[in-house]
Structure formats: structure tokens, C-alpha cells
Amino acid sequence: MKSRIVILIIDDEPQIHRFLKHSLAAAGYHLLHAETAAVGLAAFSAHKPDIIVLDLGLPDLDGKAVIGQIRQTSQTPIIVLSARDQETEKIAALDLGADDFVAKPFGIGELLARIRVCLRANRAIAAQTHKLTLGDLTIDDEAHRVERAGNAIRLTPKEFDLLVLLARNAGKVLTHRHILQSLWGPAHVEDTPYLRVFIGQLRQKIEAEPTSPRLILTEPGVGYRAVAGE
């Protein structure tokens, strides 16, 4: 049993490795470095890291291909580092199975928060519980009940499913495509406006101020993220 959590960083910029080496070590993680996809994939199969931080712009192989190869054998969380102009790449990476993304440049706090959420979600998969919380909401998946401070909130079945899906992945970004596929099926993966309407209705019912939501956050162009309970 590993005592320390191992993070594999695959990025072709030595300067990124340089500061991550110090910051992630200070945060208590053990680090593996790779500057190419080939070295990264080899390190992945040799050392079985707990989480992977992957830059999309690698010199030898497309970052998406790296995700595809890892996902063939493993569900190890993957956090993608992307530049602003890689918007579509980023969404494709998430749809291929990456767990989350951090846009460059980023503060270390943001990356550490994403890492924590991914690691926790990974552990939570084993312990599926039907009692969830999201901010000050309590959600009972089995009884189909949502309460705030003892007061029940009435949701339609679809709104409830949407809330549960987001709450179960609290802290993680879910792409439009992923949500549409999970709740409405593969025939509706392109119906983003539809989803927008449902999110709006749900926010009306659960957010204190629906115009500045705090529980369900929008990731522009990518999807939605339920706020992580710390």
C-alpha cells in the first residue's frame, strides 16, 4: 500500500515541471515527470500513479490519444492542462474520459483543488451512498427528496436526475454531451439549448439567487460543475 499519493505529470515544458515539483511536493504528493507522451505512458504502466496531470499539446502524440490509451485499461483520474485556444480540444478530451481541466495559466490553488476533487471522487465510486449534499441542500436519491433546512423542494423527475448527476460529481466539470447522454440518451447529445433550459429551471428552484448561481456553476462552452463540498 502506497503511503503517499503519486501524481504523474506529462507536459513538454520543463518550466512547468520545475514549479510543480516544488508545489506538489510541498502539498504532500509524490511526483513522476514525463516530457513526452511515450515516456508518460511508460511511466503510467510502470508506476500506476493515482492521478495524471496531462498537457494537451505534447510534441510526440496528441493529448487526446494519450487519454484514449489510458482509458483502455484504467479509470485513473486525468486532469488536462489546456491553453485558451484549445477550447474544442479540451471538450474532446473531457468527452474522451478526462475528469477535469485547468486552463493555463493557473494558480496552484486551483490545480490542488481539482486534484483533491478527482481523488475523492475516485474513492467515492466504491462507496455509493444515496444521501448526498450540495451546498446547503440535502438530497436523498432513493426517496427522491431534496430539502433545504428541512423544507422540501419540489423538482420534476428530470430536474431531480440532473441535480443528482451534478451532485454525485460535485467539484468536477461535466460536459454538455456527458449530461445529455446520461439523462436523455445518445440521441440527444447535441441538444445543448434543451439542457440550458433545464439548468435554468433547476436554478430557479434551488439557487438563492438564480441569476448568480452558487451551487451549479457554468463552465462556458464546456458544461456545468456542481460546487465542491469542502
Binding site: E13, Q15, P105
Partner: peptide
């Protein structure tokens, strides 16, 4: 984007590391 973002990523990452950790 790459050439401006990469040094900025190092600077921002290092500065936030120094402050937060």
C-alpha cells in the same frame, strides 16, 4: 497563445505556490 501563456503559467504557478505553500 503558447508563447505568452507558458512563461505566464510558470510565473503565476510559482507565485501562487510561494504564497499558498
Amino acid at each position: 497563445s503558447h508563447d505568452l501563456k507558458t512563461p505566464l503559467a510558470t510565473i503565476l504557478g510559482s507565485v501562487t505556490t510561494l504564497r499558498e505553500l
